[in-house]
Each structure stands twice: as structure tokens, then as C-alpha cells.
């Protein structure tokens, strides 16, 4: 259990393929504990994925407790081998990432999601989340797939004005 440094772009671990966990053993639990420790140590952080602490594995932690924008809230939890089961009702929001300092972008995310994964005891857990917690889950799911919000930006800040065709 340790607070680990958050890896920053261009660290290749953020883009590297990740391995699923065969079993939730002590090694897996130790990754989970590091995720929770690092997340709670980083101020304002509501989620962190294994690649962000230098581990190429399919796991993340989320905790939106006490956040003003949260509606659903499952407290602090870790999911191993997470899978997105359902995603609906997309809304655009301005997003940033601990691993990408200074930059933000407008990203459309589902506001209602169902995510499944294994918890610290290796039990299948189904998380139904909405609003802020849904956005946090989707952001962390992307990290597990080596995607950053930069890969999801749909338009630049001038996106209100539809480009007309000249020529």
C-alpha cells in the first residue's frame, strides 16, 4: 500500500496495452490499495486508473463522495477487469486529466452507465451510475484502454457555430 507518483504524458505506460487479472489475489489487492491511496492523496481526484500509477493492468478506483455534481455515489471502490455494459444519454462536459496537466477539452460522455467488474474480494460487482460518477467511470475505463480525453474531444471550443461550406 503506497501513494505512487501519478504518471504524466508522454509516459508510454499511459498508452500501453493492459493485462486483465486472472484472479483477485494479494498482488491484485495491492494494486487496488495503491490506486485508493494515490487517489485520496491527489487533491480533487475522484478517480485513477492503473496505468496512471505505472501498472499496465485493467483496474481503476473511483470515489465521488461529497462531490457537488455527483448524484449516484458508490463511495470509494476499485474495479478489476471492468466492462462497460450500458451507456446512454450523452452530454458534453469540459474535462481534464491528472496525467495531462493544463489541457482541458469538451468531451461527450454518457450520463447513465452500467459497469461491471470484480471487487477487492473477487466478487462480480455491477455499478449503476449516473451524472458525475458516470463521467468518472467512463474516463477511467478509457485509461484502462490507453485512451485519454484528448482522444475523445469532439470539437474545439468554437463548436457552437456550425461551419458553413464556402467554395
Amino acid at each position: 500500500m503506497a501513494v505512487l507518483p501519478v504518471r504524466l504524458l508522454p509516459d508510454p505506460v499511459l498508452k500501453a496495452p493492459t493485462q486483465p487479472f486472472d484472479t483477485i489475489d494479494d498482488d491484485a489487492r495491492s494494486v487496488g490499495a495503491d490506486l485508493l491511496d494515490t487517489m485520496s492523496d491527489a487533491s480533487h481526484s475522484v478517480g485513477i486508473a492503473a496505468p496512471q500509477i505505472g501498472v499496465s493492468a485493467r483496474a481503476f478506483a473511483v470515489d465521488v463522495s461529497g462531490h457537488s455534481k455527483a448524484d449516484s455515489c458508490h463511495g470509494a471502490f476499485v474495479l478489476f477487469n471492468p466492462v462497460l455494459i450500458l451507456a446512454t444519454n450523452y452530454v458534453v462536459g469540459r474535462e481534464g486529466c491528472m496525467s495531462v496537466p493544463d489541457l482541458t477539452g469538451n468531451v461527450a460522455r454518457a450520463t447513465e452507465v452500467v459497469v461491471q467488474g470484480l471487487d477487492m474480494d473477487g466478487r462480480l460487482r455491477t455499478i449503476e451510475a449516473n451524472a458525475f460518477e458516470a463521467r468518472a467511470l467512463l474516463h477511467e475505463l478509457d485509461h484502462v484502454d490507453g485512451l485519454l480525453f484528448l482522444d475523445r474531444v469532439e470539437s474545439l471550443s468554437t463548436d457552437v457555430f456550425r461551419r458553413r461550406r464556402y467554395r
Binding site: S45, V46, G93, E95, G96, C97, F132, R135, H139, E140
Partner: peptide, 10 residues
């Protein structure tokens, strides 16, 4: 109208 821009950092 004016409104704060909220940036969510994950």
C-alpha cells in the same frame, strides 16, 4: 448570460 466553466479533472 454568464456562467462559470466547470472543468472536471479525473
Amino acid at each position: 448570460s454568464i456562467r462559470p466553466i466547470a472543468v472536471d479533472v479525473f
